[in-house]
Design a protein around this nucleic acid. Sequence first.
DNA 1: CGAACCGATTGCAAGATGAAAGCAGTTGTG
DNA 2: CACAACTGCTTTCATCTTGCAATCGGTTCG
Lengths: 173, 173
Amino acid sequence: MQDIERRSGCPINLAMEVLGDRWSLVVIRDMMFGNRRHFRELLTRSEEGIASNILAARLKRLVALGLVTKREDPSHSQKAIYSLAEPAIQLVPVLAVLGAWGRRHLPVSEELSIRAQLLEEGGEPMWSAFMDDLRRLHLEDPVAGANGAIVSPVLADLTKAYEAVRARTAPAG
Amino acid sequence: MQDIERRSGCPINLAMEVLGDRWSLVVIRDMMFGNRRHFRELLTRSEEGIASNILAARLKRLVALGLVTKREDPSHSQKAIYSLAEPAIQLVPVLAVLGAWGRRHLPVSEELSIRAQLLEEGGEPMWSAFMDDLRRLHLEDPVAGANGAIVSPVLADLTKAYEAVRARTAPAG
DNA sequence: CGAACCGATTGCAAGATGAAAGCAGTTGTG
DNA sequence: CACAACTGCTTTCATCTTGCAATCGGTTCG
């Protein structure tokens, strides 16, 4: 694991040393909920428009920290598949409660917060089911998970709800 | 509320725009679990050694964002009392699950993670009780909350456990 | 053989961070 | 009533981080 500062041994402090920047959790969110597994997908399909050097730096750091793994894509000798490692998969509850907080207190858009709402309402059972799905997509068979040969039922439901809201609120897009 | 970037309307993204730096959540943690309510307390009793200019900037930003409030201390015309506002109080579940994650995956120290452990084991009922306590200390009567005239039972339990571990692991300190 | 695509890297400017010192005013002490 | 300690900050300056734009060498596809 790459060096973090270790200003103190407090769990909150250490978590902020690992995740306390503007991009790391957003990248993990895209891998987790958008199943973005390649550099280009993360770069160009990012809602927030991350810069390529920042993305490269974040991915390298997350790999060094053991939150993400990187392997070759057999379909393309230059492509790399990025996958969530177990510690990142266990961030599901963190993202769920953080999303729930953001939805209550920040100026979110309806389409981008429907998944946070469902994840909050689904509670612990849904989080566990989602984490099991993620283990299949990212740990068990990363290649099939990356190319869509296997899918997550929980993620499919979330995505379906997202598409439905998007179709309703922005029929043209 | 002060301007945040608003790169997107995603709850996770917005939460990271508000809390995604190395210090904001640490400051909130100290106010919440350490009941640090004055600038000097936050500055000198910080485990991580925050710099005074950074602390000043963070407090100003958190006040502007509506997470923290600032008022005069009647006991000292120059003193300011900083209190958690409702949105920050509702970060209790976030800090609880984030602490639980940090405790599992990062090199925490035993004494500084006992509170995270208790908070995780206490679950939702304990979080609710703690949030009620915080409302009394920070919203209902900030002055009495700041000077110790009223205390939080939940916090007292957490602090007691912390002191016990500290006495066991570092008898001299 | 050229265009599009692959995961990055480089240069540069702007902004954030952090250590240290300092500030003007207030309070407690001898 | 002088004075030291303490109050919440602010300033300065050197260093580190961030983000944009352009680009890189290689691969794949038509």
